[in-house]
């Protein structure tokens, strides 16, 4: 029993990481119908930059704050300089551009940080296991769960209770109508894109002590995040949240119980959800 509870906690921690990734990807898609294929790249860069930042400053916490800000700025530049000129073209052109950036990020990382698997020590104070359920559990993972829950709560309040949030929701549900009300939807999108990049970067920083970072982690993460977004429903925050927790648990239990079939189990869950609800758990009507 304890084994299952601990695995459930591990799955919860992984699910919270996925949520940080899925929230941004899902909102970006909901607003502009652009699948940001560079999203995994932001995650990977977040982890690598955290390594360098910790080496440089000696503090995990400085890295956890500075790296997302830097990647938010990179996301802003990517959207403003490269994506914006493509809005008159098809979505395929826009998606191809983000795919190109995914490769650029991938090669840059391999060139600068090398091809070895690297990992980051948890910050002091969170580097021990604490007694839990008659055994021991890494306190850092509990921190990840708490941080993810806090971010989810903050996002939920920000989207649900603020004017900016109302604008984003209005834009996701009906972009043309939002524009007709005088909302500069392009600016809202730039903001959401940059914010999504920062969240993905934060996920990378937070994940580095658990999962480590290595070449290819960007595309691996992108695929899992896409599965989450499809399962949860595009453009909905509750969908990203519950989809993340579901896939986090399924992946964790899959890897411990049927390791040779772990990825298959995740895909099976996705297929099952799509059969029952083709627009995802929380998705609305297809547009």
């Amino acid at each position: 029993m304890t084994f299952y509870l601990l695995q459930a906690l591990n799955g919860l921690a992984y699910g919270m990481l996925l949520f940080l990734l899925a929230a941004g990807l899902s909102l970006i898609f909901g607003l502009m119908e652009v699948v940001n294929l560079a999203h995994g790249g932001f995650y990977m860069l977040g982890a690598y930059l955290a390594l360098s930042a910790v080496r440089w400053t000696g503090s995990f916490w400085i890295a956890a704050i500075a790296v997302p800000l830097v990647l938010g700025a990179v996301g802003f530049l990517l959207e403003w300089e490269f994506l914006r000129p493509l809005y008159r073209r098809t979505h395929l052109d826009q998606i191809l551009l983000t795919f190109g950036f995914a490769f650029v990020f991938s090669d840059l990382a391999r060139w600068w940080w090398g091809a070895d698997v690297q990992s980051l020590a948890p910050p002091p104070g969170l580097d021990r296991s604490i007694p839990l359920l008659g055994t021991f559990f890494p306190s850092y993972r509990l921190f990840v769960i708490a941080l993810g829950a806090a971010m989810a709560g903050g996002l939920w309040l920000g989207l649900g209770r603020t004017r900016l949030g109302a604008m984003v929701r209005a834009g996701v549900a009906n972009r043309e109508m939002a524009q007709a009300l005088g909302i500069d939807i392009g600016l809202v999108f730039t903001g959401v894109f940059a914010f999504g990049a920062a969240l993905a970067g934060l996920a990378g920083v937070i994940a580095a002590p658990i999962q480590g970072v290595f070449p290819g982690v960007d595309f691996e993460t992108l695929i899992v995040t896409l599965i989450v977004v499809v399962v949860g429903g595009l453009g909905t925050l509750p969908g990203s949240f519950w989809g993340s927790l579901l896939i986090g648990e399924v992946d964790t239990f899959g890897k411990t119980l049927v390791p040779q079939m772990a990825l298959v189990v995740t895909y099976l869950v996705m297929a099952a959800v799509l059969i029952v609800r083709p627009t995802g758990l929380f998705g609305g009507r297809p547009r």
């Binding site: 004017r163 109302a166 929701r169 209005a170 549900a173 009906n174 005088g182």
Partner: peptide, 15 residues
């Protein structure tokens, strides 16, 4: 918008 309140609609109209 089905997911926005009446007040949110009005405030967005004056955005």
């Amino acid at each position: 918008w089905s997911g926005l309140t009446v007040r949110e609609h009005l405030l967005l109209g004056g955005y």
